[in-house]
Write a protein that binds this DNA or RNA. Sequence first.
DNA 1: AAACTTATGTGACAATTGCAACAGTTCTTT
DNA 2: AAAGAACTGTTGCAATTGTCACATAAGTTT
Lengths: 198, 198
Amino acid sequence: MKDKEAEMFILEIEKNFETFSFNKGEFIPLFQSNKKEIALIKSGKVSLMKSDINGNLLYIDHFKKNEMFSKLWIYNEENDLFFVCTTPVELYFLDYTLFIQGTNQKYLSFFLEKSIQYMTYLHQKITILQKKNMEEKLLTYFRIESEKNGNKRFEIPVTYKELADYLGVDRSSLMRKLNELEQKKKIKKQGKTIFLKN
Amino acid sequence: MKDKEAEMFILEIEKNFETFSFNKGEFIPLFQSNKKEIALIKSGKVSLMKSDINGNLLYIDHFKKNEMFSKLWIYNEENDLFFVCTTPVELYFLDYTLFIQGTNQKYLSFFLEKSIQYMTYLHQKITILQKKNMEEKLLTYFRIESEKNGNKRFEIPVTYKELADYLGVDRSSLMRKLNELEQKKKIKKQGKTIFLKN
DNA sequence: AAACTTATGTGACAATTGCAACAGTTCTTT
DNA sequence: AAAGAACTGTTGCAATTGTCACATAAGTTT
């Protein structure tokens, strides 16, 4: 299924499903519900966050337009995760049970395609996180972002605080490492814009 | 789809698909092929490995009976990954294109169910890897393994070398940390058997 | 059974990273 | 526009982790 087909499909969903709206800062009550729901974002951004013992919020990941998220595939044994809107958000709730039992194979194929994209993304993230030091984590992350944008110059789509959480490192150590990489001429940094050399 | 249904389904696959056999140490040529193939393991174990610049082999993950693997959802931009059999292996090759275009919805549902299981697993792994220090990584890993076995006492299913790779840490540092955790009475360790306290 | 390879275990030392504290900046809300 | 909150940037220091080197144990192959 190509991107265009996917968009056509989303148009079809738009006809058949109700839109739900959320304000910035609101929670998406997926972990609270018993239903096997999958959220598809029509517009806006949703972050997956974790609250740790001290009440600090840890950024895990985020989802944006045309991406799906669901508690179905999130590991939340400690019950400390939640989805929060970081912008105003419009989304659809799709019922997984209907997906899988329904007769419309299009829905299934679409969802499967999305799942595969997401698995690839998770593998990318693991590739980054399995690196043994921060420099390699950062450079791998930058390479992936750079490829995604098809350009050596790109914007970091999150705050540096969130990037530190994402990489599982300390924020101030991250800043120090960024300076170091700049001194070693491996990157150039202007605010959130990174230029990756070589 | 319950485990039993999944097993029934695998029996059906067994009827319709050819089995391929591999010796221990052999590569599964998925990255070499152009086909969109998904391997389903009938018996044996397959590891996903990475060869780094120095020619060292890094363990990424492994797959076992009734689990699927495919290059479709693996990030292999640097072309340094491969699947290798760590035991004698029998498996089926399923064609993703047929899956998605075919009329047999059972296949689709089965594959989707497997995909969701795998996404959950990847999220678990990310939960471990995003921890900021080795102690938390280890204890989270142990908790997950313990839950999976339904027992505070469980076997580590890989070598300590592989576990270090998996967690993205140095092997000798891992050994040191294990001793430390034992001294702090957080675990008890006998060879590959771990007893998780509290 | 011997030779060989791979895994486990330990220690000294260097390098990296986390932590805490603080100042300046930017973004949000009132 | 002012106040408040959150983010960015920097530093010293302590704690953690990686590297290297080597010894022993376990597993594999011949």
